[in-house]
Amino acid sequence: MSDLFGCPVHVLRLSGYLLAVGTALLIVGVTAAYGFDRALSIPQQVLAHSGVILGPTLLKVGYVMRLLAQHNLRKLNGEVCCAIA
């Protein structure tokens, strides 16, 4: 786990994935929860509304991780911090 968070490049890549998944989850959740609410059963509506909650959460976590990774990359001043294989 320390290999993943030890290198700002890896954190930057992970933050991009979190931002993409959070955006997709938010869009799908809002569309399902408010666009197709009459066609969904109660468990499906609960799942759609939880997407409306979890999507922005992933967006916020991904954004903060991106800011931290960019800050750490700026502190390294272009030095190689990790090997990518």
Rank of each mutant, 00 (worst) to 15 (best):
L67Y: 01
P43S: 03
R13G: 00
M65Y: 05
A33H: 04
L40E: 02
G6K: 01
L19E: 12
I42M: 08
S15N: 06
L14W: 02
S50A: 03
L76N: 04
Q70E: 15
K60I: 12
G22V: 07
A39G: 01
H71V: 06
N77K: 13
N72E: 15
A69I: 04
V11H: 06
R66C: 02
I27E: 10
V64D: 06
A20Q: 06
S15E: 07
Q44P: 03
C81P: 02
T23Y: 11
I27Q: 12
A69N: 01
F36D: 07
L19G: 07
V52T: 11
R66P: 00
V11Q: 10
R66M: 14
L67P: 00
H49L: 15
A32D: 12
G6V: 02
A33G: 10
F36L: 15
G29I: 09
M65L: 15
C81N: 11
L54H: 12
V80D: 08
D37L: 03
P43T: 06
L76C: 00
L54W: 11
V46L: 12
P43M: 02
V21N: 02
L19H: 08
G51N: 13
P8K: 13
L18R: 07
I84S: 09
A24S: 14
V64S: 08
P43L: 04
P56D: 06
L26Q: 13
S2C: 00
N77E: 15
T23S: 14
K60T: 13
L40D: 05
R38S: 15
G78F: 07
F36K: 13
S15A: 15
L18M: 15
L68K: 13
A48G: 08
T31I: 11
L4P: 00
I53F: 12
R66N: 12
H10N: 15
S41Q: 07
M65R: 01
L58I: 01
R38H: 12
L40W: 04
V80E: 14
P43I: 03
V52Y: 05
V30Y: 09
G55Y: 08
S41T: 15
L59N: 03
S41L: 08
G22D: 05
R66D: 05
Y63K: 07
H71A: 14
V9T: 13
G55H: 07
N77M: 07
Y63Q: 09
L19C: 06
L47A: 14
N72P: 00
L12R: 15
R74A: 15
A39H: 03
K75H: 09
S2D: 14
H10I: 04
G62F: 02
D37P: 00
L73K: 05
L58V: 01
L14Q: 07
L19F: 08
K60H: 01
Q70H: 10
S50E: 03
S41G: 15
E79S: 08
D37E: 13
Y17L: 14
V46I: 15
A83K: 13
V80F: 01
F5V: 09
T23P: 00
S50M: 09
L14T: 03
V64A: 13
L26V: 00
L19N: 10
P43V: 06
V28Y: 12
G35A: 11
L73T: 02
I84N: 10
E79M: 03
D3F: 03
I27Y: 08
R66A: 12
L68R: 13
L40K: 07
